[in-house]
Nucleic acid binder design. Sequence first.
DNA 1: TGCAGCATGTAATTTGTTACATGATTAA
DNA 2: TTAATCATGTAACAAATTACATGCTGCA
Lengths: 179, 179
Amino acid sequence: MDVKTVCLGMLTDGPASGYDMKKCFESTFGHFFPAGYGSIYPALATLARDGLVELEEIPQEGKPDRKVYSITSNGRDALDKALTNPNPTHRVRSEFLAMMCFAHLMSDEQINEVIDNKIHELNELMQIINELPTDVDGPMPKGTRFVAGFGHFVAASLTSYINDNRDMLTNEEKSHSGC
Amino acid sequence: MDVKTVCLGMLTDGPASGYDMKKCFESTFGHFFPAGYGSIYPALATLARDGLVELEEIPQEGKPDRKVYSITSNGRDALDKALTNPNPTHRVRSEFLAMMCFAHLMSDEQINEVIDNKIHELNELMQIINELPTDVDGPMPKGTRFVAGFGHFVAASLTSYINDNRDMLTNEEKSHSGC
DNA sequence: TGCAGCATGTAATTTGTTACATGATTAA
DNA sequence: TTAATCATGTAACAAATTACATGCTGCA
């Protein structure tokens, strides 16, 4: 399940250009499967070469031809086969957590800055997920809703864990009232 | 913050071999920064070449020489600089979620198998985190505890989200009592 | 005047994964 | 006898990121 497979999946919803798919990678797939043009265009070229997608080139004025891709029946077979994998991965690669492992080598200011930034980022992510287009060409498919909910739930969980435990990382003495 | 930097960080705790570090990548860092020998050994070679670590070769019978690495003061500078980054990443790459986006192209059996496997995997992860060594050479540093708690909390959150929402993905009609 | 959006791609680089290659010791 | 642990590494491959390269339209 790489960028190529995800592109195939997107095309089951109707023909699209690389540019269209990029927007989809930014919105629905943004929080768990990022991909830029540098991945998408080569992926589409390979899929076309292998006969898994067809393309129609639509001439435009002042812009490169718009290449609209459709999935072929071979492509559909390849997708179905990919969806057969009973153990799809879910990988995290976190510089953030690695850095927090070495919090004892950092100043409180540094730690607090990193944490504030991370919380801010998570808030933005939740907002992006909340603003996902709901009704473009019919209702959001059930899988998409599940995944959006997932992203929102995880971001909310992370935020609360970080808020509840950030004091564990710094050296500051909390002043407590009384006594 | 790549494998090299994490290796440097590990060495602030004392000298270690590539083999030792691999164990650390499997335990403490396992859930958010996986790395195999194929990443670790080249990383250490590069660090040594650049003078960020020193090594002592300890001859052994019937085994390759044990190479014990220590961080140098240049290495410490490089690490401190890396810890300066105010926006460390936290990236997710999920075939699982991508697949769930296309749940409408899958059979209920397929979906259920994938979900059961994922829940099982998450349970195993939580167990691994709970069994992390606590008192090897002094107490677990605060960052390590924060990160272990983080992993456990996230895994628990994911499990409960999946359990609460898996019905959304399948086509089964739930039989409800009464009426 | 400048920026965002539309629209495509290539090339170099970085990074990591997987498989290969070796081989002794020890516990089940 | 079989697997796990100790212990190192290389080479081929796969994949993604980043920078480069082009250029019009429409809005503020």
